[in-house]
C-alpha cells in the first residue's frame, strides 16, 4: 500500500513487479493509467502543468487508499501521480489494485480514481498552441461519479 507524487515518469511493469515480488496469493491485478490528450474541446494542446499541495496531497491519497481497503479485500494498492509540465502522450497517474478476485480489484481501482479526482489537491493548467493557457475547470461529471459510491452503501 503506497502513494507517491513525483515529477518523473513511472514504469508500469516495474511497479507491478515490485508490488507482486515474492507473492503467490494475488489472483487479480488491475491497473489504470491516466494520459495527457493532445487536444481538448477542439483545441490543440502543447503541454499540461500539474500543481499540487505538498503534504495535503499525500495525506488525502493515503486516506483514499485506506477507505478502499476498508471496502474491498485488497492485498496491495499503489497510487502514483505526476506533477510538473507534461506533454501529450505522457503518463499522469497510475493506480494499481490487487485482490484474490477481479471484482474487488476492478471496483477498488475505479473508486480510487473517482475519489482522487474529487478530493486530492491537484490542479491542471493547459497551454495551447498559440501560447494561451487556462486552468482546467472541475467537471460536474466527476462529482456525479463520486456519488455512486455513497448512495448504495452509506
Amino acid at each position: 500500500m503506497a502513494v507517491r507524487v513525483q515529477t518523473q515518469d513511472f514504469d508500469i511493469a516495474a511497479e507491478i513487479a515490485t508490488l507482486t515480488a515474492g507473492r503467490i496469493d494475488i489472483g487479480a491485478l488491475v491497473t489504470f493509467t491516466g494520459v495527457v490528450r493532445g487536444s481538448t474541446s477542439g483545441r490543440s494542446l502543447v503541454s499540461m502543468t500539474l500543481e499540487h499541495y505538498p503534504g495535503m496531497t499525500e495525506a488525502e491519497l493515503e486516506g483514499i487508499e485506506a477507505e478502499a481497503r476498508a471496502r474491498w479485500p485488497l492485498q496491495a494498492s499503489l497510487i502514483v501521480h505526476r506533477i510538473g509540465e507534461l506533454t501529450p502522450g505522457a503518463n499522469i497517474v497510475l493506480v494499481v489494485t490487487a485482490s484474490p478476485h477481479r471484482h474487488a480489484a476492478f471496483q477498488a481501482a475505479e473508486f480510487l480514481m473517482d475519489y482522487l479526482k474529487s478530493r486530492a489537491p491537484f490542479w491542471k493548467k493547459e497551454t495551447y498552441s498559440g501560447g494561451e493557457a487556462a486552468w482546467v475547470d472541475a467537471r460536474q461529471a466527476d462529482d456525479a461519479a463520486l456519488r455512486r459510491w455513497t448512495t448504495s452503501q452509506d
Binding site: 499540487h52 501521480h81 479526482k117 489537491p121 491537484f122 490542479w123 491542471k124 482546467v136 475547470d137 472541475a138
Partner: peptide, 10 residues
Amino acid sequence: IAFFPPVTGG
C-alpha cells in the same frame, strides 16, 4: 489555511 479552486487531478 489554504484556498484553491475545485481540484482537477487524475
